[in-house]
Design a protein around this nucleic acid. Structure first.
Lengths: 340, 340
DNA sequence: TTGTAAGCGTTATCAG
DNA sequence: CTGATAACGCTTACAA
């Protein structure tokens, strides 16, 4: 029934100084636990702080120190995907853990429209964050470009095809896709298709390339159907299309686990058994992989580590350390379960 | 190979003023598109801005305007849950959409440790955000308490049992749980158990209460097994326990869809058919509900709307409008699919 | 319509 | 060890 009060005017260093009977300078020193302050002064200040209920104004502090001790994590995904992609959650948690240890605040910024994009750009240039981690940037991503321009410490998780000079941490999508496809071939499948997605990113393109390479002469371009997102719906749609094109398909490589889950559903709907009639493999080894029926054979990707690595890179840049701007790759491995 | 440059000294309003030949005041006016600036001055300033590559320093601006145009979304969940709970994603997206329209930046802050908790508290008191939305607060949540103390505009999604005076938007968990349990009873099940979770929140408690109420005399306390989290693993564990206690169980109410997914897996593992041997119902109507086999009968909860409502409340408080501090409830409805 | 100047709350430099 | 005092970059009366 009652309106909440707006924040009241808060006590400043001046108030603390007045009450404790020392100067602002001294108050500031105890606030930042610097050396050279007498026990007496310290005690007086601490008492005064309690008494007037002082809390430091960070905007003022940032203004003069020129840093915020906050780091942004930018996630640029369409609505639905954000809900479906467990990788993002893992990356976020990994990032937060290293940032937290270094006493940096992680702030996640999701971009869901052009308007968001502009606002985030302003946010970045506004001194709110000392660095930024960019997840799932696409080709020609305006935010990636802005980050590159303003020269704020940054790192990518994955690698946008058209940006150079910003460190990234990723995996070798080509090799991983090639390996799991080869393994699928090894189980005796001869007519293998792929549901590809995210072709506007290096990851999407490289997975297709790896798939193609693994198949060699057996590769049939009409057997790869392209979908926009790494999503369940893409697997559903894509598989229906694939079945239309090649009813006798006996193997499917889904570009992600979420897609693979959709593939499984579409196959069930079409009355095909897995892995009996068709073997299917995914990519990510996310929670999806063990929740499907049958469980997914897939590529394990160290999402949490990716986040940790990107965070570490940004922190290093902030400290002024030299950083390898060419990027680093983390290991993946195949997890073989029941779907193929 | 090359270390990234640290941010170079950036142009200020003074630079723009110098180049354009007007005063700082005028530059500021065009920056904030105020009335009373001549076309000539405006043009000159805009050119100068481009020329010197000026971007406004938001820390300085915040200092004087005493606002940041940013709003925090605090998510306080253990690691794993963050990855599993699609509600959080929906809430986040809903929140972002209304904030974005109002030109506020949403910053998500995840709390994953006591250390995080303290840092976030500092962040909140630091003037980084003008308001805050709290998701999934538990009883005795320190952050909820701090928010309450500093009197920053805030809203809860859901309602922590021990905090008063802060608006919240939620659903009637009691009524919804009661309704779906009644419906399960209506299908002829006679021995119905429940996997409860999140008992440190109102939602968890109310769902148990609703379940109890629906069963009336038929309620058997030994048939509700308590689990800590709204997670798949909880469903797995809980069901095994339930089966141990009552092998002849023929109905299960899972406190969330993620739990229900675990229930389904445990039942399958035990060789029980669903809905043949036992009917199971969930709660949330999240993406989980349609990915399970069979698909879940569940309570639909408007997660996105919850987020929108909370955001709207915070915005209203910032504008100084009176807000109903007692909270508002949104409608739920039952979605009947195949699991019961 | 524009310029001037006084802050906003800190930190940091420099004497003392 | 401590106190002045000058920034930090911006907004905003108040004058002109």
């Amino acid at each position: 029934m009652i309106a909440r009060r707006l924040p009241t005017t808060r006590a400043t260093i001046n108030d603390v100084a007045a009450v404790s009977g020392v100067s602002r300078g001294t108050v500031s020193r105890v606030l930042n636990s610097e050396a050279y302050v007498s026990e007496a002064a310290k005690k007086a200040v601490e008492d005064a702080i309690l008494q007037v209920g002082y809390v430091r104004n960070t905007a003022a502090r940032n203004l003069v120190t020129r840093q915020s001790h906050a780091i942004g994590l930018i996630v640029h995904e369409p609505h639905s995907l954000f809900l479906e992609d467990p990788n993002i959650g893992s990356i976020l948690l990994g990032t937060n853990s290293v940032l937290s240890d270094a006493d940096y605040q992680l702030v996640s910024l999701v971009i869901d429209s052009d308007r968001d994009s502009n606002r985030v750009a302003e946010y970045l240039t506004g001194g709110f964050v000392d660095g930024v981690i960019i997840v799932s940037a696409r080709a020609h991503d305006p935010i990636a470009k802005i980050v590159s321009q303003i020269g704020i410490p940054a790192a990518f998780v994955g690698h946008p095809v058209d940006i150079e000079g910003i460190p990234y941490v990723g995996i070798d999508n080509f090799a991983a896709a090639k390996a799991i496809t080869a393994r699928l071939v090894g189980t005796g499948r001869t007519k293998i298709g792929m549901i590809a997605a995210g072709l506007d990113r290096d990851s999407g393109q490289d997975r297709v390339a790896g798939f193609t390479a693994a198949l060699g002469d057996a590769f049939d371009p009409s057997l790869v159907v392209q979908q926009p997102f790494y999503a369940h719906a893409s697997g559903l749609e894509g598989t229906r299309e694939l079945l239309r094109r090649a009813p006798d398909i006996d193997g499917i490589f889904a570009a992600s686990d979420a897609i693979a889950a959709g593939v499984l559903d579409a196959l069930r709907e079409a009355g095909r058994s897995v892995p009996g009639d068709v073997g299917v493999v995914g990519f990510d080894d996310s929670v999806w992989a063990i929740r499907t029926q049958p469980q997914l054979s897939t590529v394990h990707q160290p999402a949490g580590e990716l986040g940790r690595g990107a965070a570490a890179s940004v922190l290093a840049q902030i400290r002024g350390e030299a950083v390898d701007s060419s990027g680093t790759f983390l290991e993946t491995h195949i997890v073989w379960r029941d779907s193929a």
